[in-house]
C-alpha cells in the first residue's frame, strides 16, 4: 500500500498501575493494526478487553508503555496528529451548561474555525445529526441518543478525514442506534475513514469492511468481514410462497445428490431489531408519510424481513 495509512498502530503495549500502586494491569498487549483511508474498521471484544485504551493511545490521551501510534503518518504523541481526527468517547458528557449549537461552536473554535465558515459548518452539522429543533436546548436536557449525535457532530466539526467512535450506540435505544448507524453509512459513502469499536456485534457486521477481535488486550483475529463470516461450503436459498410439494421435491433432489446435506429449512427469522424498527419508526412513517423520522421504507407489503443482508433503508 503506497498511501499513508489513516491509522497505524504498531506493537502497542499499555500497562496501567493497579490501585494503590499494586501490580500492573496490561490493558493492551502488543496490538498492531492498520486502517487504510476510506475503510470502516470495527474493533470488537468484550468489556475490559482494551478497545478504549487502544483508541486513547491512538489519540495521545494515554502514553503507550511501548509501541507507537500514528494518524495519517503523524505520531500520536504530537498535537498535530489530532488535526485530521474526530473522536466520540464512550458515554460522553459534554458541558451541560452549553446548548447544542454552542457545543458545536466551542469545538469548532478549538480547531481554529471562526466567523462565517464556523456558522455554516454548525448549521450543516445540526442538520446532519438531525438536532436543529434541539439546538437551543441545554445538553443537560438531552437524551442519550441526542448526546451521542451531538458528540458525532463535534467530532466532525473540523471536517476530519478520520473518525474514532468508541461504542457509538451503547446505551441508545434501537431507533437512536439506527440513526447513528445510518450516519456512519452516510459518512462511509462520503469517503471518511471510520475506526469504531463495539461489543454489539450485529452493528459492526452491518457497517464494517474489516474487523479485528480483541480479547484480554490481544488482537486474536483480524480480516475482511465477508471472509471472516461467510461459510464457504454452504448456500442459502430463500423462497417466497413455496408450496409444501415444492419443498418436498427440493429435499428429494438434495438427497439424490452425492455429498450434499440439507442442513436446515424453515421460515427465516427477521431480527428482533428489524421487527422493532418496522413496528415503530416505519409504522409512523406509513401513518404520516410527510414526517422524515423513519427514513423511507420499501413498503412492498410482503414479509420482507429476513436474515439476509438486504438493506431496508436506502440512504
Amino acid at each position: 500500500m503506497s498511501e499513508t495509512p489513516a491509522v497505524q498502530v504498531s506493537s502497542l503495549v499499555k500497562d496501567f498501575r493497579g490501585s494503590f500502586g499494586r501490580g500492573m494491569i496490561r490493558a493492551v498487549d502488543d496490538v498492531s493494526l492498520q486502517i487504510a483511508p476510506g475503510e470502516v474498521y470495527g474493533l470488537i471484544g468484550p468489556n475490559g478487553s482494551g478497545k478504549s485504551t487502544t483508541m486513547k493511545a491512538l489519540l495521545g490521551l494515554v502514553t503507550p508503555t511501548s509501541g507507537t501510534c500514528a494518524i495519517f503518518g503523524r505520531d500520536s504523541s504530537k498535537v498535530d496528529s489530532r488535526q485530521e481526527v474526530g473522536f466520540l468517547p464512550e458515554n460522553p458528557y459534554f458541558y451541560k451548561h452549553l446548548n447544542g449549537e454552542e457545543t458545536i461552536r466551542f469545538y469548532g473554535k478549538l480547531c481554529g474555525m471562526r466567523g462565517r465558515s464556523l456558522r455554516e459548518r454548525t448549521e450543516e452539522l445540526l442538520e446532519l445529526v438531525d438536532l436543529q429543533d434541539a439546538r437551543k436546548r441545554r445538553l443537560g436536557a438531552y437524551s442519550k441518543g441526542m448526546l451521542q449525535r451531538i458528540g458525532l457532530a463535534q467530532a466532525l466539526v473540523q471536517d476530519p478525514r478520520l473518525l474514532i467512535l468508541d461504542e457509538p450506540t451503547a446505551g441508545v435505544d434501537p431507533i437512536g442506534s439506527r440513526q447513528i448507524r445510518d450516519l456512519i453509512f452516510n459518512l462511509k459513502e462520503r469517503g471518511f475513514t471510520v475506526f469504531l469499536c463495539s461489543h454489539l456485534l450485529e452493528q459492526v457486521q452491518e457497517v464494517c469492511d474489516r474487523v479485528g477481535i480483541i480479547h484480554k488486550g490481544t488482537l486474536v483475529k483480524e480480516g475482511r468481514l465477508e471472509e471472516l463470516i461467510s461459510i464457504e461450503d454452504q448456500t442459502e436459498i430463500i423462497l417466497r410462497n413455496a408450496t409444501p410439494d415444492l419443498l418436498h421435491r427440493i429435499h428429494e433432489l438434495a438427497d439424490q445428490e452425492e455429498g450434499v446435506d440439507l442442513v436446515r429449512s424453515g421460515n427465516p427469522r427477521t431480527t428482533l431489531e428489524r421487527l422493532f424498527l418496522r413496528e415503530t419508526v416505519q409504522r409512523d412513517a406509513k401513518a404520516d408519510p410527510g414526517s422524515g423520522t423513519g427514513q423511507g421504507s420499501p413498503a412492498d407489503g410482503g414479509p420482507d424481513g429476513c436474515n439476509n443482508d438486504t438493506e431496508e433503508d436506502s440512504p
Binding site: L61, F87, L88, P89, F94, Y107, L110, A155
Partner: peptide, 11 residues
C-alpha cells in the same frame, strides 16, 4: 470525560 473531547482536538 469532557477532557477527552477537548484534548482529542488539536489542543
Amino acid at each position: 470525560r469532557t477532557l477527552y473531547t477537548i484534548l482529542a482536538k488539536p489542543v
